[in-house]
Write a protein that binds this DNA or RNA. Structure first.
Lengths: 192, 192
DNA sequence: CTTGAAATTCGACATCCATCTAATTAGACA
DNA sequence: TGTCTAATTAGATGGATGTCGAATTTCAAG
């Protein structure tokens, strides 16, 4: 659904859309009604609705040529909660990795499996990234949204960590689809 | 602190600032450090920090010419909660107004003093607006932020209701400062 | 008072995006 | 099938704002 927190904030960060959410929270509306209520043209309303739909915030019900839009309250609550906790922590801490990595992880990984922070040093960051890779199976394709979801189980800034995983040659990327690279590429930890 | 939800969303709806919040959540940072970490120039970081400060999200501690910035976690939590509930409902429903207004209000005001929705008809909206005016004393000046706070106790869309109050000649406005207009201007309810 | 370092403010430029009109699609009904 | 209505998509334009270099401010230390 929502790929990143950023997308959610962007979706809400405009007066027209925020107002739109307010209206949609009250009852079902057609595009025409919304355009009238907001004093906007229909294409503009369609445009905003599309963004909200992309976040899964709006449900649509067709009736003839009219489309009735309403707020998906559950989705809004789900998203808001993510804002609140900044990290879902779905995955409780799993089995421990080896020796040096283990020591590093002890410092950065909380008991619930979330990252307390991202190490500034490239070496330690490597340990964290290797640890994140446990969530990715070999020979499997992961769309970018899925990658973000998996990472957000541990840290809100999935965009940064996703880039780091690619930068460290743990994940490869093409056309917004990712896959795991062979472990020998990075498991030892050949750093510059 | 934060005037409107919209301002909060806008503050968070940019990658640089969201990243910034992530860093500030970890420890104290100087502007230089942040600029390096984000790969931005210092003026840019200052600019973003100013916006976050305007939302009360960032605290600053001066040490010589260096200024150490950190995230105000309480503020973030407070704001996030507002996102969740969309309406603070600080003011429980008070004494009831008169006759017709009372009937209208029964339909639109929840037990906790929040507006369930804003009436579409101008006449009924008038009743709701008159009811909102109970929060404003005569001969007193209200900066816009304060007006928003008072309104948000009842409904998240303070901008719309604020405009309506002005449009219905209940509040006057000059230079982002508001004050209550004499009741005879609107109490009877002379509508076009 | 001067010098140097850190940060902010100012002004310019570039990019993003909200909005519009016009054109197109999708559905209902004859 | 043709037409009417609702909605979306496409393309263009204007306004908002993120970013930067340069100038200014603030503070500490000689």
């Amino acid at each position: 659904m929502t790929e990143t927190l950023l997308e959610f904030f962007k979706a809400m960060a405009h007066e027209s859309r925020l107002r739109l959410v307010g209206l949609l929270a009250q009852r079902e509306w057609s595009v025409q009604e919304l355009a009238a209520a907001l004093d906007l043209k229909e294409p503009t309303v369609s445009h905003h609705l599309a963004m909200l739909k992309a976040q899964g915030l709006v449900t649509v019900r067709a009736e003839g040529t009219t489309r009735w839009h309403a707020l998906d309250r559950d989705a809004l609550e789900r998203l808001s909660k993510r804002v609140l906790q900044q990290s879902p922590a779905q995955t409780a801490a799993k089995a421990a990795p080896e020796d040096w990595d283990a020591k590093v992880l002890r410092g950065f990984v909380a008991a619930d499996g979330t990252l307390k922070s991202i190490p500034a040093s490239r070496k330690k960051r490597g340990a964290v990234l290797r640890w994140l890779m446990r969530d990715f199976e070999a020979d499997r394709r992961y769309p970018e949204a899925r990658v973000n979801d998996l990472i957000q189980a541990h840290h809100w800034d999935s965009a940064m960590l996703r880039r780091e995983l690619v930068g460290h040659h743990m994940l490869a990327r093409k056309d917004r689809v990712y896959w795991r690279l062979p472990e020998k590429e990075w498991k030892a930890g050949g750093e510059a």
